[in-house]
Design a binder for these strands. Sequence first.
DNA 1: CATGAATGAGATTTCATTCAT
DNA 2: AATGAATGAAATCTCATTCAT
Lengths: 189, 189, 189, 189
Amino acid sequence: MRAKRTMTEQARRTQIVAAAIEVIAESGPQASFKAIAERAELSSTGLISYHFANRQELIEEVGREILAVFGGFVLDRTSGIEEPAEVLQAFVTANLAFLENHRAHAATLVRIEPDTGELARSDQAQLADVLRRGQADGSFRAFDPHLMAVFILSVRDGIIRQLELDPALDFDAVAREFGELVSAATRKP
Amino acid sequence: MRAKRTMTEQARRTQIVAAAIEVIAESGPQASFKAIAERAELSSTGLISYHFANRQELIEEVGREILAVFGGFVLDRTSGIEEPAEVLQAFVTANLAFLENHRAHAATLVRIEPDTGELARSDQAQLADVLRRGQADGSFRAFDPHLMAVFILSVRDGIIRQLELDPALDFDAVAREFGELVSAATRKP
Amino acid sequence: MRAKRTMTEQARRTQIVAAAIEVIAESGPQASFKAIAERAELSSTGLISYHFANRQELIEEVGREILAVFGGFVLDRTSGIEEPAEVLQAFVTANLAFLENHRAHAATLVRIEPDTGELARSDQAQLADVLRRGQADGSFRAFDPHLMAVFILSVRDGIIRQLELDPALDFDAVAREFGELVSAATRKP
Amino acid sequence: MRAKRTMTEQARRTQIVAAAIEVIAESGPQASFKAIAERAELSSTGLISYHFANRQELIEEVGREILAVFGGFVLDRTSGIEEPAEVLQAFVTANLAFLENHRAHAATLVRIEPDTGELARSDQAQLADVLRRGQADGSFRAFDPHLMAVFILSVRDGIIRQLELDPALDFDAVAREFGELVSAATRKP
DNA sequence: CATGAATGAGATTTCATTCAT
DNA sequence: AATGAATGAAATCTCATTCAT
């Protein structure tokens, strides 16, 4: 599991992770410790090494943090909904809302993707479950639920990437079009 | 445009780009000149610097090369088709066929994506045109063609990424599901 | 001389020195404070700095401690013997017995040697005295007593080093051969 | 085996090794790359890393170089001698002559000893052979030849160490006393 | 054109020591 | 006395790029 940590240490780790998220969002996944330390106003990069065994541990924590925040946000807005089709629409809306308000988290998520395989899988599995339920209750057409989950999450990630190419993207339009895509892709013909 | 080049020089550039594609596919976008030079069996990394002004130029050339090969491959299999809906299905099939046979190109494409914004845009524009034509001739429903292009290409890229998480992915199944997604997403209700 | 110390403080210092001896024996003379603190189950490396002015003071204390223990052990087994030749044999036996039972002390001794010049000299002087007495009473041949002491101690240290190359060394055989060497080297022809 | 090297590269390696020998002799086995680079008047420590894969490779090369030079020197002065007893005396003389004229090599040898186990063994084996021959031809008494070799080499190393405690050591006296020790230790009673 | 060497900036990591509590 | 956090210097190693031949 994880080593016990003092409050101070946990606070520092959180602070460093937050800085890393920002810096990686801006300058890519190999953002230097120097840049992160400066963003966090640390006295030296040594402090990062003091709190994280190595770069990988920091990046992993960044991934965990983003997925926890992102996942929590989306879960808040989708749990309790009965109809799978409505869950999907809420999922789309929640994702877009998150992107709009936590751009750095989103940007960093897609930038460190190769390092977060395990975590990504669990997202896929959760979404696949919703799709399976929709098929079971007869509201969705036949398709491979896991692949469809991969597709939907890919579109979500693609939107994040597009946001960097085109920062003026109209969130409402994207939400609407994404929602229609998902609806058209899953509903019975 | 571009400076004139001797045959020898062009051959070297091609060789270096090919090596870079392989190495980046395997070890990520910050593959070192050392690794690339070794793969290309060059005597020194200096030779890379000799032929490319800097790292960025090499990466850009890698992007251009991949999109030329990839684009050419897909174009071969989609041009001449009249019906936009059929073009889309051919597009899906061609993409999957390419992934199956040129995994390194595909992997490198998604790995250097942040550095190839311009090129990506032209892909999006081309695909958007097909979609627009399908709307004009009444075979597609109403949607934002550019966004739909972004979505479809995102799914394509998502498949490439998934291939690394799950190398045993069933190409035929993916092609079928991807084709159905595109079809359902675009056709009239 | 030395500052007065409370019992608690002395206990801590002793504990730290003991841990340092073990760690240096295993991992060399530049064993980190971190490793020593962990071995001593201290809460922080700061505690070492708290009790020792600096690294050098700790190492010196380690040297003093080893020579006190080692010297005491050998003195116990050599004092009270009249005949210098017998003292030498007892010295050899005692040294080998010590090595066998306090390998960490011995290993650390030779590892920090360069830092313990002063202490080494007093060993040499003591041994030289025995040799001088043997010459005075006519049982030893003519030789430079100080150099002979250096030689004998060098062999002792060489045995410690060899022990690391060849941990299965036969102590009895070494004791016998070492004893014969010393005897042959000192007795009259 | 070893990679092919250009003349220039070999020259640089040699130069770096020479600087390392000097610096280690003066400041101990963990002499920094910075100190070595300065001694060799290199532009940066990066050049050391450029020529040696890592610190260990450099130290190993230092060990090989010293033993090659030292061994060659001693071999020059001992080969061709028939009588084992005379070989031993020549060995002693040669060793002292080397120490006198290549103090840095000698000092570095004993300082990096823990890293040169393998090489040390071959020295022991060579010397043990001479001793065995002397036993076979009846000129030496019975003793364990390998242990005696270890002892003699330990004295040699002890002299090197003593040289640092007492830089004014009288080489002739040491040579004479060392020679007598070896003679007394090996000849028949 | 190509080679091999060199450059020097920059990255991460380790560490003894200091300090506030 | 002890703790845990922080400091900042130093160390090694990597790398794209430059340059003389």
